[in-house]
Amino acid sequence: MTPILAVIVDIQELAYTVLASIVAATAVTIAVSLAIRGTARYVDHSQNGRVALAYGSLALAGICVLAALAMLGFGLYVMISD
C-alpha cells in the first residue's frame, strides 16, 4: 500500500532535492573556505619569510577559487538549461 504522503509529494524529487542541496552547499563551502584559508595563510607565511609555504598556500587558494568558479558555472548552466 502506498503511503498517502508518497502520493501527494514526489518522494524521489524531494530526496534528490535534499541530496543535491547538501552536496552543492557542502562542496561550495569547502572550496570557498579553503580558498580563504589559503589566502590568510599566504599572508601569514609571507610575513614570516616562509616563501615555499606561502606559495603553497597561494596555490591551494587558487585551485579552490577555480573549483568554486567551476561550481558556479555549473549552477548557471543548470539554471539556463532548465
Binding site: E13, L14, Y16, T17, A20, A24, M79
Partner: peptide, 8 residues
C-alpha cells in the same frame, strides 16, 4: 537551484 532543477 536544486529544487528548481528537480521540479520541487
Amino acid at each position: 537551484m536544486a529544487s528548481s532543477h528537480f521540479g520541487f
